[in-house]
Design a protein around this nucleic acid. Structure first.
Length: 292
DNA sequence: TTCCAGGCCCATG
DNA sequence: CATGGGCATGGA
């Protein structure tokens, strides 16, 4: 029950946990409760200190990537106004080191879902198929279900967790990983392009989700996922109204413009954009009209 | 009620 | 190679 204090300069726990990179931590008083893999942890930030259970210091420090040199990282950011605004807004967000399957699987369920819904699906899957683990205070948390466990569920059961059309993708991916068709650990040894291609063999995994896995699971801090928010930012800020800008072009631009820590830049732009009032964004020029 | 969300995949030009 | 439509669910 004794607590330990970790020094965590240049860190904002709340922003980090609420920036849309991880989806299962729950507020608990002035701190948060969650699982690092299968280990339950309560973390509370006080100034530049992190309060954690004695014995969990190393695990927590590694998970939250307290060793990432944020000052150096910020110096590599482009100096344009949009990037600097995002930095001011997001300072202290760290790209954390998530368990591979949990990270990948959660992003497979994220397609066309709001952050809040991704959280709901994560908790539903955990409570239904995950192993219960007790926190010190008696509270029960649930580990993310293993690929083996999910592989033996059914699409119907997964749909009951609110997954919709993503159910088939999660099930298929779980089966491939459980069967060893895809070796998530082995991907650690691949270069970026190779790793991206390998991840994209999984059903429901394309460039965006693969890059999320690379960034948030594999610590590829240059990986630059392009979702609807980032695409909006890139088009509006860096390609002012130019037409005929393909996603391929946006990808190439991002890879060179944002530097060796492009993934950090991306996360800051993403979170900043997402927290802007909706009125900030111009109306979609091509109004997607629906069916007859 | 309508719109949109940390997309992917497949069918067409 | 680029583009369009379909796919489920739930909150704003």
């Amino acid at each position: 029950m004794t607590e330990s204090v970790l020094t965590a300069p240049e860190f904002n726990l709340k922003l980090t946990l609420e920036s849309g990179q991880v989806f299962h931590w729950v507020p608990d008083g002035n701190g948060f409760c969650g699982l690092i893999g299968t280990t339950p942890v309560r973390v509370e930030q006080q100034g530049e200190s992190l309060l954690v259970r004695k014995g969990a210091e190393e695990l927590v420090a590694h998970y939250f990537a307290l060793d990432h040199p944020l000052d150096e990282i910020y110096e590599t950011f482009p100096e344009d106004a949009a990037m600097q605004d995002a930095l001011t807004f997001c300072r202290g967000i760290r790209i954390i080191r998530q368990p591979l399957w949990e990270c990948l699987a959660t992003f497979i369920t994220s397609a066309m879902k709001q952050v809040k819904h991704i959280q709901q699906m994560s908790h539903a899957l955990r409570e239904r198929f995950g192993e219960p683990v007790e926190l010190e205070n008696g509270q029960t948390l649930f580990a993310y279900p293993t690929p083996e466990r999910l592989a033996e569920t059914s699409e119907k059961e997964l749909r009951e967790c609110g997954l919709g059309f993503r159910a088939k993708n999660l099930l298929g991916s779980a089966q491939m990983v459980a069967a060893g068709v895809i070796d998530l650990e082995a991907i650690r040894g691949m270069d970026d392009a190779e790793a991206l291609a390998e991840l994209c063999r999984l059903p429901g995994v394309g460039a965006k989700i693969a890059n999320c896995a690379l960034l948030f699971g594999y610590e590829r801090v240059k990986a630059f996922p392009i979702d609807v928010w980032i695409e909006r930012v890139l088009r509006q800020i860096y390609f002012q109204k130019k037409r005929n800008v393909t996603v391929k072009r946006l990808t190439e631009f991002s890879a060179s413009y944002f530097g060796p820590y492009g993934g950090y830049a991306q996360q800051y732009l993403f979170h900043h954009a997402r927290k802007q009032p909706r009125s900030h964004w111009a109306k979609p020029k091509t109004a997607k009209r629906k069916k007859p």
